[in-house]
Computed example of a mutant assay.
Amino acid sequence: MTPTIAYDRTVSNFIDQLSATGHVTHRAYRKTSVTLHHNAARLSHQGVLNVWRTRPASAHFDVDAAGAVAQYVKVNEYAWAVGNTAGNQSTISIEMANATLAPGWTVTDATWKSAARLAGWHFAKVIGERPSRSNLFYHHHWSSTSCAGPYMDQIYGKVLAAAQEAYDRFKGAPPVPSADTEPFPGASFFHAGQKSPIIAAMHRRLVAEGCNRYQSNADADIWGPGDVQSYAAWQQKLGFEGDDANGIPGQSSWDKLQVPNV
């Protein structure tokens, strides 16, 4: 059986089953972008395969309504996905299941966030560039179609930010604050190997409160990849949840640090 990518989450394997349809071009190309699509239906992984068994189409991956991932085409191969020869050669295509049908074509948070994370992995492990507006596309970038749908158009900024965060984590680098993140006082210290009184204060608070997820030396005041996890753990102790506990020292985190006995 042809193996799937070495992802850190389960990837269901439909590569050989789709290859048997003949709707794959087994020729390798250098990939330089990722393109997101929608199913135009609420399809399971098996449902996607069933459609492609009779319809001459394919894509590298599909993400279902729960965020689970399946692979159909080897990453470096040509998928019949974007209606454009150059695009099919250069892009990695990821399909997404819809939550609702026309006219909104909405996609669940679980689905698009999983797709963005998968895109970030490919940018880190295959493409070698950070996601940006010049390399993370929707299907309509390549051909005349509304895919990935009006809902996905509305949230492109969130999708890009999630892909960038995933890329940073897979590369082992501290996350880069987005443009709308208000920098914390002393942000000029936000570099590995430079001392930061903000991070030192965070360390002292973590030790004082016995944070059991604290993973760095209690006396350290160096910003490094390990401290991203420490800062995220500290944010969780202050009540931040989900994406807000991202390990990025923002203004709201700094404000809470100033409040005694938080």
Rank of each mutant, 00 (worst) to 15 (best):
T2P: 08
T2I: 13
P3C: 08
T4G: 01
D8P: 06
D8W: 07
V11A: 04
S12D: 03
S12I: 15
S12C: 05
L18C: 02
S19M: 09
S19D: 13
S19A: 12
G22W: 11
G22P: 03
V24T: 01
V24E: 01
A28H: 04
T35R: 05
T35M: 01
H37G: 02
H38F: 10
N39T: 10
R42N: 08
L43W: 06
S44R: 05
S44E: 10
H45I: 15
G47W: 03
V48T: 05
V48Q: 01
N50V: 15
W52D: 02
T54D: 13
P56D: 09
A59I: 12
H60R: 08
F61S: 09
F61K: 03
D64R: 02
D64N: 14
D64E: 12
V69D: 01
V69Q: 03
A70T: 14
A70E: 04
Q71W: 09
Y78C: 03
A79T: 02
A81H: 05
G83H: 05
A86V: 11
G87Y: 06
N88H: 08
Q89H: 04
I94N: 00
M96S: 04
A97D: 04
T100A: 02
L101M: 11
G104N: 02
G104Y: 12
V107C: 00
V107A: 01
D109I: 11
A110K: 06
T111N: 00
K113R: 11
S114Y: 00
L118I: 11
A119S: 07
G120L: 10
H122C: 07
H122N: 02
V126N: 03
I127V: 06
E129I: 12
P131F: 14
R133F: 13
Y138G: 07
Y138L: 13
H139Q: 08
H141V: 15
A148C: 05
P150T: 11
Y151N: 08
Y151G: 05
Q154G: 03
Q154E: 14
I155Y: 00
I155F: 06
G157D: 06
L160I: 15
A162V: 12
A163K: 02
Q164P: 00
E165F: 14
E165L: 10
A166Q: 04
A166E: 12
A166H: 06
R169M: 13
R169F: 04
A173S: 05
P175M: 09
P177M: 13
P177L: 13
S178K: 12
G186Q: 09
S188Q: 14
F189P: 06
H191R: 06
A192E: 07
K195Q: 08
P197V: 15
I199N: 00
A201N: 03
A201Y: 01
H203S: 14
A208M: 13
E209I: 09
C211G: 09
C211F: 03
C211R: 08
Q215I: 06
N217Y: 13
A218W: 05
A220K: 01
W223P: 00
G224A: 15
P225K: 13
D227G: 11
V228M: 01
Q229N: 11
S230F: 02
A233V: 12
K237M: 07
D243Q: 07
D243S: 08
D244E: 15
A245R: 09
N246L: 08
N246S: 08
G247F: 02
G247K: 02
I248K: 00
P249N: 12
S252A: 14
W254F: 10
Q258G: 02
P260D: 12
N261V: 11
V262H: 03
